[in-house]
Structures are given as structure tokens and as C-alpha cells.
Nucleic acid binder design. Structure first.
Length: 297
DNA sequence: CACTTGACCTGTCCGC
DNA sequence: TGCGGACAGGTCAAGT
């Protein structure tokens, strides 16, 4: 479930931990997770120094001194976990939720292990194997299809409500939730933050974009930014798999008002939160707070 | 052409 | 407690 706040949290962690480290070796055995040839790895990854860690949408970009970059998409269950040379004593405190992960790596979900000359390691774990890591020339990163098509970053200062509405209108006849999830409309929103921002803006996810009043769309713009910002503050959402670059969980899920709260009372009105399907995805909604525009249930 | 559904995977949970 | 099946949800390909 890494969405924008989770990927950004990983980026901040890696940017603090990785630069200046030099890659000594790389182990990988699942071609779909890391399709690069041993030749390219030997030539452009081994002996390269980490320069910086960037993010665009839900994609991480680790720039190397070889003028190549590691481009990474965590998809649903991907993790990037850095383990320092001196293993922690494997105890954050008895019963602490983060107790252990670092000491247990690699495990059976590990797809790629990158070892640095100082003895530290970076693990790319991905239980479901949907994620990927690709080594490519830095200059070619903006040329990959995803980068060419992806929409604006919602947390950039130039992401105005005017721009937001303009982007939504590209798919004005679709369910608003499907449009929020469309990475070509805007970058970084996934299931959690689509549900949470629509709840905060009191818009039912099946609403048709074109039928939602402009004032509600402006509210959605504000709520989306607020939800993403708060989640980054909380280190993202750990629903199941997500952990940050140090193997630690995020706590935003504790602040979610509808996501994974089906059958519980709505925080605002007390009626029961329902789980329905919209755009082929599990969707959490308060049918009483969230109004349907231009669609029938 | 615009939009929706299925495939990619593995692990977990639910009902029988 | 075993076992099948639904489900989790990001993105691209295939289908309507």
C-alpha cells in the first residue's frame, strides 16, 4: 500500500542513510523484481556511490555516481529496508512492534540485496512480487512511459485548486474515486487517501466528477492535501506490510476516519461505515455524510 | 476513444 | 483443522 506519504517517508529515510555509501555487491534472483543483466550490474552498479534519493509519484529514484539510477516501484507489498553494519541487538523494547524485522533480513520476501563497502545493506523485499527495481541511465528516467504520463504532484506549491479541477475534468464522466486513483490525472493517490479525502470532503466515491459542485471539488483539493500532509507527519500508513527505510511502521492508520473502519460508527454522525466496491476496489464510505452527485447507488 | 476489467503474485482470513 | 475461494490494491494490458 505504499502511496505518496509512504514512499515519501521511505525517501526521506534513504536520503539520510544512503548517500556516499559505495556499492560492493548485489544479489537478486527474481527477474521480474530486478530484470537487469549481470553485465549492467557489474558495470554500472558495483563500485558506484549513492548520490541522492528522489521521488516522483510513487516511484523512488536512487541516483548513482555512474550516471545510472535505480528506479523502484514498491507497488503493494514492497519494502526498502536499510540495515547498518552493526546489527542492532534486535530489541527495540519488549513487545515493541518494530522488534525484530531488521535482525531477520534477508527473509523469503527478499528479492534484491545490495551490500555496501562499509558492511551495511539495503534490502528490497516484496512478498507479492508486483514491485520492481530497474537500473538505467539517469538521463533516461524521465523517458520511461510512466514518467511521461504521470500527473502533477499534489504537495507541490503550484498544485492549485484550479489545476486540480482541471485535471479531474480530464475524466469528467467517471466515478470520482476512479479519477483520484488515476496516476495520469494526479500523482501519488492510492486507495487509502482516496477514501479518506473523499470522506473529509463529504463526497460519495461513486459521484460523477462533472456533477460534483465546484465548491465540493475545492474542498476535496484542500482535504487531499491535508490528508497527505498529516500522513507524512505520521510516517505513513501501515495496514499490513508497509515499513520505512529503518523497518519501522507508520501510524497514520490510527487517524483514518473511514479506511478499514467498516462496521464501526462514523466519527462525525455515528452511522455505520460501509465497505463497498467502486472502480473495482474496496471502498470505505459513510453513506450518511458523503453525498452522491450524478450517480445512483 | 473512453472507460472497465483482468492479470500479475503471495499470504491471510472466512465459511463450510 | 483442512481446504477452497475471496480479498488485499498499483499499474499495465486487454477487453467492451
Amino acid at each position: 500500500m505504499p502511496e505518496l506519504p509512504e514512499v515519501e517517508t521511505v525517501r526521506v529515510g534513504l536520503q539520510r542513510l544512503l548517500p556516499k555509501r559505495v556499492i560492493k555487491s548485489a544479489d537478486f534472483d527474481w527477474p521480474k523484481s530486478f530484470p537487469n543483466s549481470k553485465h549492467d550490474v557489474g558495470q554500472f552498479l558495483i563500485d558506484a556511490k549513492i548520490i541522492a534519493v528522489r521521488r516522483r509519484a510513487k516511484v523512488l529514484i536512487i541516483d548513482l555516481s555512474s550516471n545510472y539510477s535505480l528506479v523502484i516501484h514498491l507497488k503493494m507489498t514492497g519494502q526498502l529496508v536499510f540495515v547498518p553494519k552493526t546489527k542492532p541487538d534486535n530489541r527495540f523494547g519488549a513487545g515493541h512492534p518494530n522488534d525484530s524485522l531488521i535482525g531477520k533480513l534477508p527473509d523469503k520476501s527478499t528479492r534484491v540485496t545490495i551490500s555496501f563497502t562499509d558492511g551495511s545493506r539495503l534490502f528490497f523485499n516484496d512478498q507479492r512480487k508486483f514491485g520492481w527495481m530497474r537500473l538505467m541511465p539517469t538521463i533516461e528516467v524521465p523517458e520511461i512511459d510512466f514518467m511521461k504520463k504521470v500527473g502533477p504532484e499534489p504537495l507541490e506549491s503550484d498544485f492549485t485548486d484550479k489545476l486540480f479541477i482541471e485535471r479531474l475534468m480530464r475524466r469528467k464522466n467517471s466515478n470520482i474515486k476512479a479519477v483520484l486513483l488515476d496516476q495520469t490525472v494526479l500523482a501519488g493517490v492510492g486507495n487509502i487517501y482516496a477514501d479518506e479525502s473523499l470522506f473529509a470532503a463529504k463526497i460519495h466515491p461513486i459521484s460523477i466528477v462533472n456533477a460534483v459542485p465546484k465548491t465540493r471539488l475545492k474542498a476535496l483539493h484542500k482535504e487531499l492535501i491535508d490528508v497527505l500532509t498529516l500522513s507524512i507527519e505520521k510516517g505513513g500508513s501501515t495496514d499490513r506490510n508497509y515499513v520505512n527505510a529503518e523497518g519501522k511502521k507508520g501510524s497514520y492508520i490510527d487517524f483514518a476516519k473511514v479506511f478499514r473502519r467498516e462496521k464501526q460508527p462514523c466519527i462525525v454522525c455515528g452511522s455505520e461505515i460501509k465497505k463497498i466496491r467502486v472502480a473495482g476496489r474496496g471502498t470505505h464510505v459513510c453513506e450518511s455524510c458523503q453525498k452522491v452527485y450524478g450517480a445512483t447507488k
